[in-house]
Design a binder for these strands. Structure first.
Lengths: 219, 219
DNA sequence: GCATCATTCAATAATTATGTTGAATGAACT
DNA sequence: AGTTCATTCAACATAATTATTGAATGATGC
């Protein structure tokens, strides 16, 4: 029976989606796109990869239904198809975190040296923001900040943090966040702030997760 | 990509997991394993694939952390690593359902065909039986079958149908019947057969009506 | 029209994934 | 010890994926 029954045909389609997620560069593109729509050129610059290569990966994701594209002048802007794409990314990350010895090794080796940096959850941060007890800094580059950030957050790109320490208000606590749970910049920011005597922590998640949770975003 | 920062290393690990999900056969194995632990042999039988092939897919999934295996006598039982694997499967399915035109096409085609499960009338069936164009299956329990059935019909109780699919002759069409026009079993039988790629319909009436119409009955 | 520039395409080469076959392994049973 | 049998391995062929390069496309602005 070389006939393909509908069930198998469906599995093939599901596999197409999973395959489109099965590449580190494409996952990185997804994380970038989670910040907002981007042109091919901008993404290529972020990943430091050839434009043609990024374009091909984006097209592969478009064929799988992960992203959509729209021409704007001479640019083509890609964006995530919807939040379910981030959901799939997140659930894959959960599997990897739970079952990949390699992930544990990497995480312990790189992140856990600083795991006294207990992260602040979205909910806790939202509550403390309301009470005005916290200064929130967004350590992402200005272009990403411009496309959306936590209400009241101030943008201090990591590279400028050290020069701008004196600008920071001395509220009881400073919370730094960036692109997502694995984004290194917020770790480095907190490390630097603590070095200079600030009471600093990082938010557990990044802006995409904050937005997906239905919390307010400022533009 | 010769230097690999920890972030990229993590993306690579996430990609390993997604890649392991990016194959229709492995997705089907996951669905089977969702029912409970299974041996390689049992899975190979279910998927109707060579044992060595299934074994390799299972090992690929084990390397990615999706499943675990445990020896039990001469069998090796595989099981899902945990429920997060099903979560990943589900979230991929959601993406596919929302964004794949192909999935929509398959689903619509499949259900439409189910809806128009046009029954075969007694007269039409009798004619097609004479021409040898049709395999007739009686999905009632064996005791009822023994008391009388359509000439040439084979008895395949509904519960055994899935295991005995390979026994079925590949005539142009299969017609299932049971106790009467309101007997659910023939509906289910036809649905199952179509799922597996057979061209199947149900007879409008059951055996009593057939007999009452004066048509031949075998005992 | 013509030049510019972001994006896409096409061709190539290298790597990886997949399925098939038959042999090897290793536990259980006689 | 030898046999059986589920599973795994190894070798091979084929197909798919990926990165790279340079050229083609197509919208924009002069």
């Amino acid at each position: 029976m070389s006939i393909r029954n509908p069930k198998q045909a469906l599995y093939e389609q599901f596999a197409v989606v999973a395959k489109a997620l099965g590449n580190p560069q494409r996952l990185e593109l997804i994380e970038q796109l989670a910040q907002g729509p981007r042109s091919v050129e901008a993404l290529a610059a972020k990943l430091a990869r050839p434009v043609a290569n990024v374009s091909q990966h984006l097209q592969a994701m478009r064929r799988a239904g992960l992203v959509t594209s729209e021409r704007d002048g001479k640019f083509v802007n890609y964006r995530l198809a919807d939040e379910s794409v981030l959901g799939a990314f997140a659930s894959i990350r959960v599997v990897a975190e739970r079952h990949s010895a390699e992930v544990e090794r990497i995480v312990r080796g790189y992140f856990d040296r600083r795991d006294d940096m207990e992260p602040v959850s979205r909910e806790e941060l939202a509550a403390r923001m309301k009470d005005g007890l916290v200064t929130v800094i967004d350590v992402r580059p200005p272009d990403e900040f411009a496309l959306g950030h936590l209400p009241g957050a101030i943008n201090v790109p990591l590279g400028q943090l050290e020069q701008r320490l004196s600008d920071l208000e001395a509220k009881p606590e400073i919370v730094a966040y960036c692109r997502g749970p694995w984004c290194v910049m917020s770790f480095e920011a907190v490390a630097l702030l603590r070095e200079h005597g600030f009471n600093a922590r990082r938010m557990e998640d990044g802006l995409p997760e904050w937005r997906d949770a239905g919390l307010a975003v400022e533009a």
